[in-house]
Each structure stands twice: as C-alpha cells, then as structure tokens.
C-alpha cells in the first residue's frame, strides 16, 4: 500500500515522515518517533492512556490515523515540561499530591488535564471529574488525581491551594 507523506509538529519540532494510511497515531508516535510516553491501555478508545493534544484538542491517539494529523501540531507528555526542563505545574501537582500509583494512566491524565485547564483555568471539583471522564485509572487513584489538578490550577493562577475535603 502506498505510503503517505505527512508533516506534523511534535512538541514544537517539525517532523516529516512516511506513514501507511492505516498506521494509528499512537503507533506512529511510539514506534516511528520513539515517543513512548503516550500509552496503549485498552486499544478500544475507552481508557484515555493514549491521549495527546492535537491542535488544542484532547484526542485519543489509538482512534486516529497518523495521516489525519497531517499539518497538525501535536503535544505529548514528552513536551509537557517547562522549557528549562523543570516540571510543569501539572507534573509538579501529580508529584506533590501522589497523583500516580503505577503511572500507566498518567501521561493521558496530564495531557487531558492540560487542555481542561487551558479551557477552564479554575475548575470546580465536579468540573475536573467530568473533564477527565474519558481517562481511566485502574489503580482507582482518582482522589489524588483530582487534587493534583487542583494543585496545578492554583499554582498557575497564583492562588493558594486548598485540598478538597474527602
């Protein structure tokens, strides 16, 4: 099958590549670009571990073909740290609030939370929970994931962080 030539921007870097049309974006990122941060969890579009940001949208990269992303700008977990290499507010929040246990869902959680905070910088707990409804944590560590996102929102907004009551 003829390969397609695509140009994408990944984590700020211009990338050109040849892909089979049937290559899923998650396989392109992990296997052709060696960006193994985004995970394949369920491979059926339910779990959100493969979530990346494409042109300001949270997208499940296991349900998108790489060719569809031609011309797009993609951010993965590898592009989430600050420019000087320090942890971004969200990454710091997940660390400080113990927002990860096994860590498998974390890249998807952080990418989804990143877009959520871009659209809603000061979400309520309810809005956070609905906002990450497409991401599953099999460790069921949602309480601390919500806290991690609240921590990041407070840090970005320069407001004091208050832990939600459990």
């Amino acid at each position: 099958m003829t390969k397609s030539h695509i140009k994408v921007t990944i984590n700020g870097k211009a990338v050109e590549a040849l892909v089979e049309p049937r290559t899923l974006l998650i396989h392109f990122l992990r296997e052709q670009q060696n960006l193994t941060g985004a995970h394949i969890g369920c491979d059926t579009g339910h779990c959100g571990a493969c979530t990346v940001d494409i042109d300001d949208m949270s997208v499940k990269s296991c349900m998108t073909f790489a060719v569809q992303a031609d011309g797009a700008s993609i951010t993965t977990i590898e592009g989430m740290a600050n420019a000087d290499g320090t942890l971004s507010a969200l990454q710091e929040g997940f660390r400080m609030m113990h927002g990860l246990q096994c860590g498998y869902c974390t890249p998807g959680m952080i990418l989804r939370a990143h877009r959520l905070l871009q659209e809603n910088p000061d979400p309520t707990e309810d809005e956070i929970r609905h906002g990450i409804a497409g991401n599953l944590c099999r460790c069921t560590g949602y309480v601390n994931i919500v806290k991690a996102i609240q921590y990041a929102a407070a840090k970005i907004n320069g407001t004091p962080f208050q832990e939600a009551a459990e």
């Binding site: 959100g48 499940k60 349900m63 906002g131």
Partner: peptide, 9 residues
C-alpha cells in the same frame, strides 16, 4: 455523548 476526548472528534 461518549467522553470529552471523543467529543472533540
């Protein structure tokens, strides 16, 4: 419908 990610697409 579905979840936030799917609603973007």
């Amino acid at each position: 419908i579905a979840d936030p990610q799917i609603r973007y697409k």
